[in-house]
């Protein structure tokens, strides 16, 4: 077994975890990957905060104050920060709400839509403060690499990671680069 030197962290902000699911789609190559890396914060380890890492992979855009805190923690700790998936790169489907007034959104979800007890908009101080618009992560912190797709395929993720871990400039094949 080779020495595991590269620490990798991942998180999902305003995303659907679809990119993480696609990451799992590298299937048995995960065994090869864990020979090369050590996981830090990720949904796989359930570590809650990111420590010093070599690579941070962020799924999802920024839709609330907590997203910003997590994102800044990643940027501070990760030498290389990667935006994965449409949401991290242009806001994605959550940004469809960018042209709807936030209060209108809340009313539609919590008051007008049937089946919710009470019909009130949640207002617990523990809930993160939502922003009026969803933004891609590069509008908040510097991002080193982008891996587009909704989600990028397991093959695209594997190609990207193997390039990056081998010290090559990541480059996708034509059919691996897609925005949908």
């Amino acid at each position: 077994m080779t020495e595991r030197q590269i620490r990798l962290a991942t998180c999902s902000l305003a995303g659907c975890f679809g990119c993480h699911m696609s990451f799992l789609d590298i299937d048995e190559r995960l065994f090869d990957l864990v020979e090369l890396i050590e996981f830090d914060r990720t949904p796989l380890t359930d570590i809650k905060h990111c420590g010093p890492c070599d690579v941070g992979i962020v799924e999802g855009g920024v839709c609330n104050a907590e997203n910003v805190h997590v994102l800044k923690e990643f940027r501070k700790n990760c030498k290389v920060l990667v935006a994965i998936g449409a949401c991290a790169i242009n806001g994605g489907l959550p940004s469809l709400r960018n042209n709807i007034d936030l209060w209108d959104c809340f009313q539609e979800v919590y008051q007008y839509e049937g089946g919710l007890e009470g019909g009130v908009v949640p207002n617990d101080p523990e809930l993160p403060l939502p922003f009026d618009k969803v933004h891609p992560i590069y509008e908040v912190v510097k991002v080193d690499y982008f891996l587009p797709g909704c989600p990028p395929s397991g093959d695209a993720i594997w190609r990207f990671l193997t390039d990056l871990l081998a010290g090559r400039e990541p480059k996708l094949e034509y059919e691996q680069l897609h925005f949908d």
């Binding site: 790169i89 242009n90 933004h135 509008e139």
Partner: peptide, 10 residues
């Protein structure tokens, strides 16, 4: 690989 610029979201 990314739109690079800040989004207008018009």
């Amino acid at each position: 690989m990314s739109p690079h610029y800040n989004h207008f979201y018009p």
